[in-house]
């Protein structure tokens, strides 16, 4: 399933870049995140996060890896996670560009492949879940870095 979005953050591109590539800061805003462990700085980390699909909540254990980091423009991240009876693979990209009045525009997209018992349910709920989770995430980020 493919998702994409765009958000304006009232901060400089460098600041946005640094914030969004800082696992400690990102993990404060990621919805459902239970723990984050850096495996290799600026490269690989491990997260445990729970995601609700309707009334069902699943806890995923995922390895996340930066595949490309081109400061302060472009990054690509790949994640492979598992939960009992389920697996998830995500490839996500973000591209930063200048917006008017010193703000930064972030365009993102994600390709999520979910397999397992949740896949049927998720195929119908994922759109809404992604929208809700991304909105919560960016609101939180904006709150932390917008002056």
């Amino acid at each position: 399933m493919k998702f994409a979005g765009s958000v304006i953050i009232e901060a400089s591109r460098d600041k946005v870049w640094q914030s969004l590539t800082d696992p400690n800061l990102v993990s404060q805003c990621a919805p459902g995140l239970e723990s984050m462990r850096i495996v290799e700085p600026d490269k690989q980390f491990n997260v445990v996060a729970s995601v609700g699909f309707g009334s069902v909540k699943m806890t995923f254990d995922a390895n996340v890896e930066w595949e490309e980091l081109e400061a302060p423009d472009y990054a690509r991240v790949k994640a492979h996670g598992k939960a009992p009876g389920n697996g998830v693979d995500v490839v996500s990209e973000m591209r930063l560009s200048d917006a008017p009045d010193g703000a930064t525009q972030m365009d993102w997209n994600a390709d999520v492949v979910l397999v397992g018992s949740m896949a049927g349910l998720a195929s119908r709920l994922m759109g809404g879940i992604t929208k809700k989770m991304s909105a919560a995430f960016f609101d939180c980020i904006k709150g932390k870095i917008e002056v």
């Binding site: 492949v113 397999v115 896949a119 049927g120 195929s123």
Partner: peptide, 14 residues
């Protein structure tokens, strides 16, 4: 099934 081979309706709700 979806492209990944997930069965999308393995229950009597779906």
């Amino acid at each position: 099934y979806d492209e990944s081979g997930n069965i999308l309706n393995p229950n009597f709700m779906d």
